[in-house]
Amino acid sequence: MILVVWSSLGLQAQKVKKQPWIDFNPAFRFGFQYPQLVGSNFFADDLTESLGFHTSLSLVKIANFRATVGWELQGYRNNNPNRIGNFSHIQSSTALFQVEYEHPLNGRWVLNPTLAYGQSRITYRATRSGTTLARQSWEEIRLGSYANYSFDKTFVGYVGLHYAFLYNSDIKASPADEDYFGRGNKLVLSLGILIH
């Protein structure tokens, strides 16, 4: 009887495998994104979005939270040369610092709500690869979530939806121009692969 009890206890111990509090399980995310500019501002009124690229890396998970650093490259086309100049192409390069939480939904699906802070350098060019005519520094606060689907232990596909508020606190302009040219909002739809 002691042997039966002892063996059943051992089986229970094998079933309940504890998740480590600190998990050195890197997560490398890369994919495409499409922003939808919204609001009444220079970005939404005078620019056209195009497909962008993003990537991010997290090295450790602590109690289901991850700190992630990421980078994005995004281009826009200028539709209104009379507004602030005849710049054909505007490029945004963004460094993002993100906190995300892994919330398992079931065996394969995980929801990753995220909160991020980003710093962007925006370059105004005469043509796509032409002379740089002006530069700006922007910041953004981004909130949203990824939904991850695990194909196996290593490869995960994801879609993401985020809302970002962009602002340029360095811009010097009249109050009306500062509001129009110094603020922006966008919804960002992303799609890509995450590798553990």
């Binding site: 925006i122 520094s137 360095d170």
Partner: peptide, 9 residues
């Protein structure tokens, strides 16, 4: 760079 992107006149 010809223009200062942080100042609008």
């Amino acid at each position: 760079i010809p223009y200062d992107g942080e100042t609008i006149i």
